[in-house]
């Protein structure tokens, strides 16, 4: 029993820092670069993705015996797209401002590598509870990375923090002389590059990461390690 709880705990915690999908796994780069101009947007995008990730992980692990192996990817994508449509409705109804801020990237959660990657690498092989926890951990790790990166870009690039909420803080001096380049596309690439370099430095003595798309020609499929290997074998 204690072993079981330990395992469940591990599935939850690993996604947050040790196997952080963005900073260590290098997945889901598109939304990470695109919507991190404001910390609040980062939280919104992160939580929307977490919702889709948890729901799709639960449903896929429940259906893992029903879905035939050969057509599993289209099945996964349809399940994911269904939940994305749901979150689009919820956000349009309750947070219309954030809905227009996130724009097209809300629909593009469907093709976020992290979600399909977890479906393929984890949810289609594990129990419902473990899959849900894995989804929650990975989602929170994603949210944390987005929030961290968006905070840097917002503070340096526009001199505010958490703009759009009632907790908004104006940074003195920086607010009058913002470094605009940080909230432009070029700044996104730059900040993410530096963040990953810092993570590399900190994690120097740790064992090499398991899933890495860095040297993988199939990175575009981004369906996790196993499917990458399968595609390479073809």
């Amino acid at each position: 029993m204690s072993d079981n709880t330990h395992g469940a705990m591990h599935e939850f915690v690993k996604g947050i820092i040790k196997e952080n999908p963005v900073l260590v796994g290098l997945l889901g780069m598109c939304p990470t670069l695109a919507i991190t101009t404001q910390a609040f947007n980062g939280i919104g995008m992160g939580l929307a993705t977490t919702f889709v990730l948890v729901c799709s992980n639960i449903v896929i692990s429940m259906l893992k015996k029903v879905i035939p192996g050969t057509v599993r990817l289209p099945c996964f994508i349809v399940i994911i797209a269904g939940f994305v449509t749901l979150i689009e409705f919820l956000m349009k109804g309750y947070l219309p401002e954030m809905y227009s801020e996130l724009g097209i990237f809300l629909s593009l959660i469907t093709v976020n590598c992290i979600i399909l990657g977890r479906a393929e690498a984890f949810a289609s092989k594990n129990t419902v509870i473990h899959s849900a926890l894995d989804g929650l951990g990975m989602g929170l790790g994603f949210t944390l990375a987005l929030f961290f990166m968006a905070s840097i870009r917002e503070i340096v690039g526009s001199g505010t923090w958490l703009a759009g909420t009632k907790f908004m803080i104006e940074i003195p001096w920086v607010h009058d002389n913002p470094t605009l380049i940080f909230i432009m596309p070029a700044g996104g690439f730059f900040v993410l590059g530096c963040l990953i370099a810092v993570i590399n430095k900190l994690a120097k003595r740790k064992p090499p990461k398991e899933i890495s798309c860095e040297n993988c020609p199939n990175a575009a499929a981004c369906s996790g390690k196993e499917s990458c290997e399968a595609a390479a074998a073809k």
Binding site: L26, C30, P31, L33, C113, P185, A220, C222
Partner: peptide, 9 residues
């Protein structure tokens, strides 16, 4: 910022 995975890969 679309297609970054393919762009880097």
């Amino acid at each position: 910022f679309m297609g970054i995975c393919a762009f880097l890969g």
